[in-house]
């Protein structure tokens, strides 16, 4: 039986931390014209995402990844 701990490799955390605080050039508040566009955010059309995630998670073994919470379903 496999354990989930085997999957959580420390390099992942390290990668996330380095990326988060690397010396990327800082973007100023007045330079966020394009970042302000709705399509540049990670939130999308909620109902579309709801349908799409529901469809794929009921036909594939993988699920989740983009957030926690939200409705469960009997589509085992």
């Amino acid at each position: 039986m496999k354990s989930i701990r085997g999957c959580m490799k420390p390099w992942l955390l390290f990668f996330m931390l380095t990326c988060a605080f690397s010396g990327c050039a800082s973007v100023q508040p007045w330079e966020k014209q394009n970042l302000a566009k709705p399509e540049m955010t990670f939130e999308g059309d909620r109902l579309d995402t709801g349908y799409t995630e529901h469809i794929y998670s009921s036909k594939e073994a993988s699920s989740g990844g983009s957030g926690v919470g939200g409705g469960g379903c009997g589509c085992n």
Partner: peptide
């Protein structure tokens, strides 16, 4: 925010 035209996200669940 990586640059004026780039944004990245990493999530572990």
């Amino acid at each position: 925010v990586v640059a004026q035209n780039d944004i990245m996200q990493m999530t572990m669940t």
